[in-house]
Write a protein that binds this DNA or RNA. Structure first.
Lengths: 253, 253
DNA sequence: TCTACACCTTTACGCTGCGTGAAGGTCAAT
DNA sequence: ATTGACCTTCACGCAGCGTAAAGGTGTAGA
């Protein structure tokens, strides 16, 4: 059986360019050249190509494959063992690299957290806005439709059910927090339960949780008037109370 | 502080060629070009180069690094996470590759062993020949110079000292084996010592030792007349005795 | 016989990230 | 004025092909 370059290529699953290249670098020469200059391959060449592809699958460089398939005295086992060493080194290096990248990602958490806080800010605005809507349309009047739409856009990465969960959790927190506030002890069971639920709620927005970020956010609840306004709406001092509860929670864990 | 291209290169540990290349691909342009056409870099460029080298250490391709350092809106964390995925995939692939190579090595053990047996055969022939030379020149007369030279060629991959070691070991085996044979117990201490030394000797020729191959070789000592002749030279039955000792040795280990 | 179309050929640039000259200008010191 | 250490812009080379471009060949149908 004889093959033209394309037939052989289809048989072995390689491009004609590859076969011409193998011819060029003297790794696989056609059995003969016909009168029109066409490359004609025979059975022996098919076998040899199989061999080449086999070693190629093991990722050996072509010059090594060449030595193996051209010189019968060359030991393929030797070459493979050497190759194995190289691969093992490569893997070690790769492992170090992965560790490095992961550490870098972790170190950048601060920035990531900031980004997520921004996202959170958008969500918070929307909540405030929704709340305000219940009591009137001051927000829309104050900031215009654009601001409302913008804040909405920022939360649209959530699915509907995620959003529902978040809303339910937020209501639960609100209820427990109100009770705890009446008792007055931020270290008490109710307040700590509120802090824990708050963490749960937070993790719906943050991919990674850290005590520090949680504590910082709690402080933000007091510093940022929009937050304070939201939490203190029914009972003034609730924002500060929540902050204290969260700080106790994060310190105790 | 301003830097010429070489100063910056030394500062950061990269070649001037690299810096020119970074200029060319718009990843790090000099702060200005002086009247003679020299590239002059400033502090900002030093910082940027640090950044570039940092990401380069994480093995990110330059076009990605470019996006990170040129567009401030581009998220490095995002890029790193993607990069991490790629690296993990790469490692998986590498693991499969290593497994593949190892399996190939293992599967080829038969061939390797065969090849090494051939090599060993060559050595054996030479030893036989040397022995014969001591007692006459029959071999040379029987097979001609060509055969002798050919068998010599096969052993020439060994260094001189390796060869010396092998010869000494072979003599030792011979001595112990003779003693053990007189005692008559292939399971006895002396015979087992001979088997162990034989393994040692073998490992000078085989890169990988396996009990099966060792046991097979022992059988060959009985089946192949040239071997039998060599071992039985002084005391007939020694080849079979050695085989028994080796079989006991390989079975007990 | 003409024409279309699939197949073949060689030549050569492109990709990555520079290393390594070559040919020639500049700067500071001797 | 000369030397030597800088600097500049080309431009080839590396691996392993992908991808045209420009042109010859083989076969089938009208």
């Amino acid at each position: 059986m004889e093959y033209t370059i394309q037939k052989l290529g289809q048989l072995a699953g390689v491009s004609t360019r590859t076969l011409r290249y193998y011819d060029e670098i003297d790794i696989l020469k056609p059995a003969r050249i016909n009168s029109s200059g066409y490359r004609i391959y025979g059975e022996a060449e098919v076998d040899r190509l199989q061999q080449i592809l086999f070693y190629k699958e093991l990722d050996l460089p072509l010059h090594q494959i060449k030595e193996i398939v051209t010189s019968q005295s060359f030991s393929p086992a030797e070459a493979l063992r050497e190759h194995r060493e190289k691969l093992l080194n490569k893997r070690e290096q790769l492992d170090r690299l992965i560790l490095n990248v992961e550490q870098t990602i972790a170190a950048n958490e601060g920035r990531i957290t900031m980004k997520d806080i921004e996202k959170f800010e958008g969500f918070k605005k929307q909540m405030v806005e929704e709340n305000e809507q219940k009591f009137g349309k001051e927000i829309r009047e104050k900031y215009g439709d654009q601001a409302v739409d913008q804040s909405k856009k920022k939360v649209l990465n959530m699915t509907q059910s995620e959003h529902d969960n978040a809303t339910k959790l937020a209501e639960e927190i609100h209820a427990i927090l109100a009770k705890a506030f009446k008792k007055g002890d931020p270290a008490g069971d109710a307040a700590q339960k509120a802090a824990e639920l708050h963490k749960k709620w937070l993790m719906l927005y943050w991919h990674e949780y850290s005590k520090e970020a949680h504590a910082n956010l709690a402080q933000m609840y007091v510093d940022d008037e929009r937050f304070t306004a939201y939490y203190d709406k029914e009972q003034p001092g609730t924002a500060a109370f929540l902050r204290d509860a969260i700080h106790i929670y994060t310190d105790s864990k």
